[in-house]
């Protein structure tokens, strides 16, 4: 077995690896280089050094977008994980219609982000217009609108991961704890959650990075209105790149900063939760 894996791996890995190089590694390296250039299109770039990064850090809107994104991510990470965990607990307890509920909760994931944003924009505006209000006139509406959409979309996905985690905990652990006199809260905190840490690691990682990377829903739901107050990092980068003459390089520099930020946060989070995982 081992031998055939050794001799056959290029055949299985080769095509995917090639696609990965073309679709990911090469654009990434080009992006790194372009962040140090003054350019209009990727074909004719002029090297200018770190000027783009200086401009990016001086940009107040970029900082605002960072704060807004951080707040948004914090809110959604907590909401999504708590709710998804709760739903998963309920749906592993032999509730009637479990399969229908699981499927229904998962379904919003199958809709693309842009479509989702526009649909929810209609829903929100439909409700708000009864009070002569609209989604784009207040940053508060925009913020909570985004939170609702993202929760609606992602809770189902995280729920599936949590359900898988819950089902893999041997029931003997909980039974033993119950016999020892632990009440249901004690069992949740001392038995279930420690055993769920691998699932929690994955879900936290996904929600954290999804929150920071959010673009589609932001673009279609609020487009940063009013006055860029609901503009998140990815949208800010996009707007820098496309709506300003000669700012393509700055947009690229922001994208590199963004990359470093997301990778750093993801790694810190992984390290923190990994250390709490227990072995059965």
């Amino acid at each position: 077995m081992e031998k055939s894996i050794k001799s056959y791996f290029p055949i299985f890995l080769g095509p995917t690896f090639l696609a990965f190089i073309i679709g990911f590694i090469v654009p990434f390296l080009m992006g790194l280089y372009l962040s140090l250039c003054d350019f209009r299109t990727a074909a004719d770039a002029k090297f200018i050094g770190l000027g783009n990064f200086v401009k990016a850090f001086q940009d107040g809107e970029f900082l605002h977008a960072f704060v807004f994104t951080a707040l948004f991510t914090l809110t959604t990470v907590i909401l999504i994980n708590v709710l998804a965990f709760a739903v998963a607990m309920v749906l592993t307890n032999n509730v009637p219609g479990t399969n229908i509920f699981r499927t229904t909760f998962f379904m919003p994931n199958l809709i693309g982000g842009i479509v989702l944003g526009y649909i929810w924009q209609l829903v929100f505006n439909g409700i708000l217009s009864r009070y002569d209000l609209a989604l784009k006139i207040s940053a508060k509406f925009g913020f909570w609108g985004l939170v609702v959409v993202i929760c609606w979309q992602q809770i189902g996905y995280m729920m599936i991961i949590y359900i898988a985690g819950l089902q893999s905990i041997p029931s003997s652990l909980n039974e033993a704890a119950a016999i020892d006199g632990a009440n249901s809260w004690q069992r949740l905190w001392s038995v279930t959650i420690p055993n769920m840490m691998p699932s929690i690691t994955i879900c936290l990682f996904l929600t954290l990075t999804n929150g920071f990377k959010l673009f589609d829903q932001n673009l279609s739901l609020t487009a940063g209105e009013p006055m860029k107050q609901t503009e998140m990092l990815a949208l800010n980068i996009f707007n820098t790149f496309y709506s300003r003459v000669g700012y393509q390089g700055v947009g690229q520099a922001k994208a590199v900063i963004f990359f470093v930020l997301v990778v750093a946060l993801g790694l810190i989070q992984l390290k923190m939760t990994r250390s709490r995982e227990v072995q059965q």
Partner: peptide
């Protein structure tokens, strides 16, 4: 001056219209 100028003005007009 730029597309950006128009976009910022547009947002400001919208905000003003609402309040």
């Amino acid at each position: 001056p730029s597309e950006e100028w128009k976009n910022v003005l547009g947002s400001a007009l919208t905000t003003y219209a609402a309040d």
